[in-house]
Simulated scan of single mutants.
Amino acid sequence: MPADEQSFPSVWARPQRQRREQPALSREQIVAAALRLLDTEGIGALSMRKLGAQLNAGATSMYTHVANKDELIELVVDEVYGEIEAPVPGDAAGWQAAITGCAHSIRSTLLRHPWIVSVLGEAGVAYLGPNMMRLNEAILAVFEEGGFPLDAADRALKTVFAYVIGVSTSEAAWLTMLARSGQGEQEWAERLWPAAERAVQEFPRQRELYAAQRGQNLRGARDDEFAIGLDCVVHGLAARFALEPGA
């Protein structure tokens, strides 16, 4: 491959290799198997050798489609983004409802695959993947329909993603830890509570907050906190770009 084609080490930055014969494995089969492995065993379990063993395939079949593990992760990340429900321009409820619905879908998708948040910053140029491209285009279209100039729509898109990924990263770490412990969310909280109460004794504001939160449904509380924060983000975007609340 010419040197200029190797300047960006990404599966999306090079042409697919052409073979005269039909390869033993398709890209779709490899990506599906990698996704199953990641969902069941986590990012630390993924290796080209282990994936090849699960697929009963040799390295030659694997490397027809991906040059290395980094390219494989790019493909799997884009596959996950394909699960997100993209907003649809022309939503009768308005752009804010469309963006809010999409943000909830992004969060739900990331939490179904909690390993993904640990690789989002390392997934090369994952934003060039076709599913990510389609999602971004749909979000930009909804913001434009709401009155955002294109450059403002781009800033708004990045702001929404920053909020959702930031919150989801903490949630995914929490859920991963719970999965390793074998305990439920409420069970873990009850066991930790005496230590938390001792820790906040000298901090009156936090002591009051902890007391008010005792016994609450943690899953419901996480959902509520996400929704409230997202509402602030969406209304903040509307205010920043001087749009009518119902636009």
Results as ranks from 00 to 15, higher is better:
residue 206 Q to Y: 11
residue 168 S to P: 01
residue 122 E to K: 15
residue 212 A to Y: 05
residue 165 I to T: 13
residue 194 P to L: 06
residue 154 D to L: 07
residue 155 R to I: 11
residue 117 V to T: 14
residue 150 L to W: 12
residue 214 R to W: 06
residue 197 E to T: 12
residue 217 N to R: 12
residue 137 E to C: 06
residue 204 P to C: 05
residue 121 G to I: 13
residue 186 Q to C: 04
residue 137 E to G: 08
residue 111 L to E: 04
residue 119 V to E: 13
residue 115 W to M: 05
residue 167 V to R: 09
residue 182 G to E: 12
residue 122 E to G: 15
residue 141 A to L: 02
residue 114 P to C: 15
residue 141 A to K: 02
residue 123 A to V: 04
residue 167 V to M: 13
residue 121 G to V: 05
residue 119 V to T: 14
residue 161 F to L: 10
residue 116 I to S: 04
residue 120 L to H: 07
residue 194 P to K: 03
residue 115 W to N: 03
residue 112 R to G: 09
residue 181 S to K: 14
residue 121 G to N: 14
residue 201 Q to V: 08
residue 181 S to D: 13
residue 172 A to G: 02
residue 116 I to D: 01
residue 138 A to E: 04
residue 118 S to C: 13
residue 123 A to Y: 00
residue 120 L to E: 03
residue 127 Y to I: 05
residue 189 A to W: 03
residue 153 A to C: 14
residue 110 L to W: 00
residue 121 G to S: 12
residue 209 L to N: 08
residue 132 M to D: 03
residue 120 L to I: 11
residue 202 E to S: 10
residue 131 N to G: 07
residue 183 Q to C: 07
residue 208 E to K: 15
residue 218 L to S: 07
residue 155 R to T: 11
residue 158 K to I: 01
residue 124 G to Y: 08
residue 124 G to E: 02
residue 152 A to Q: 06
residue 195 A to I: 09
residue 175 L to C: 04
residue 189 A to E: 06
residue 130 P to H: 08
residue 146 G to S: 10
residue 164 V to D: 00
residue 142 V to K: 00
residue 113 H to L: 10
residue 142 V to P: 00
residue 115 W to S: 02
residue 200 V to W: 00
residue 203 F to C: 07
residue 180 R to A: 09
residue 151 D to G: 02
residue 132 M to K: 14
residue 173 A to H: 11
residue 213 Q to P: 04
residue 166 G to F: 10
residue 181 S to M: 11
